[in-house]
Design a binder for these strands. Sequence first.
DNA 1: CGGATCGTTGACAGGTATCAATGCTGGTGG
DNA 2: CCACCAGCATTGATACCTGTCAACGATCCG
Lengths: 233, 233
Amino acid sequence: MKPTSIKSAWKGSLKCQLCPIKDKVLFADLTEDDFQQLHLPINEIELAAGSVLYQPTDDNNYIYTLRSGSIKLVHYLTNGNYRITRILRQGDLAGIEALNGSAYFQHAISMQNTSICQIPVKNIEHLNLKSSNLYKQLMDRWQKAQSEADIWLTDFTMGNSKQRVAKLLIYLAEQESEQAFFLPPREDIGALLAITTETASRMIAEFRRDKTLNYSGNTASINLKKLNIMIMK
Amino acid sequence: MKPTSIKSAWKGSLKCQLCPIKDKVLFADLTEDDFQQLHLPINEIELAAGSVLYQPTDDNNYIYTLRSGSIKLVHYLTNGNYRITRILRQGDLAGIEALNGSAYFQHAISMQNTSICQIPVKNIEHLNLKSSNLYKQLMDRWQKAQSEADIWLTDFTMGNSKQRVAKLLIYLAEQESEQAFFLPPREDIGALLAITTETASRMIAEFRRDKTLNYSGNTASINLKKLNIMIMK
DNA sequence: CGGATCGTTGACAGGTATCAATGCTGGTGG
DNA sequence: CCACCAGCATTGATACCTGTCAACGATCCG
């Protein structure tokens, strides 16, 4: 996998108060007054699939909220190996570590066409002094990130590869409100589950053959009952 | 592994201002005034090795700061399997999720004799309204927890079992200021690395034979150079 | 001196990585 | 419109690694 740089163009600023997913994002609890305190513009970014949103060497001046699509956080090892350590979706925050002055921990790369709000850290710092509502939201985000990390450690890294793929498929399916969900390329599935691309492919193909999984292209749906039985063993 | 309940006795409250590790803990940035706001007592707890500090079914009324020793966070699966998802040490916070009103995510179990401060959540909530210094500390804790989770996902769950054990040994050694460090029982090593107890034992024994690792009982020291070569491959 | 617990080691079967070859598909340019 | 190519997915063969089951050793403690 070779990260490419951001291809897409700025779409200009957008009033947060009119945001259709306002109640799901970081600024959910802010008051009218709080919004008046936002001096720096919040830009909306459109990313094509496979674009790099940020990477550890970038200046850590922004945090990001996902409006739609999905972002993978990729942790590269010094020997060239890598793992995907998290998938972010609508309402999730990316790059919160910038708030603490840290460099970004990982590479953030879009998995599909993705729409994002770019929030200057200075805005947040300014608000922090005023609004304890924001703190609460931030704490909730950290907590969510942490609790997901624990799930990944337990669900996605133990058991044999068939069980791991089964758990991943269930996870991917339940994140979507739709029946259908986005099936990542096999290389990504491998990087998610700490298995090889080939093993990931074998398991996916096997699930397709026995009708546990249906897909064409990126779009998939599952037989949840069969998968649940699988992960019990 | 069978968790047992807390055996130890309360030691009574302790003035935080006199705490010898005050600058490493949650209350590091608090002012004299802030301390006056602490109405509920902060108790010091001594845990024998293997004691359960908290578990998901407990009331989430406290968060905990480690003064000395170590705590493992254990995530049990419905089928009886389990994983250790984090090791906490001096200055670390346990049970932060209680601040967001969540039930404790995991079982927290002492690995050695361990000394802990028990902080009522109500104290924190009260302080939150007054002190933005505390928020900053809390954010730092979340961030640290998250960044460690990523390391665990990448270091401790990929590569073959020899490399994983090597990485764990390096991790354990660099957490201690001393030359010697605490070598967990083989079952714990397995639960940390998602390998079986037997495999963990084999690798540890092998490292001992080729002098990469020295230990007697719980106390161990490593040949860092040899281990670093090992994890490169 | 048992007995319990933990660590070590062996044998073997099954699972997974590795290396390699072959399909499949969408996009590009003639 | 079609041929071709590049990238991804699939499949096969094989060696290696790890889980599993089992036995034995070491240590501690009553």
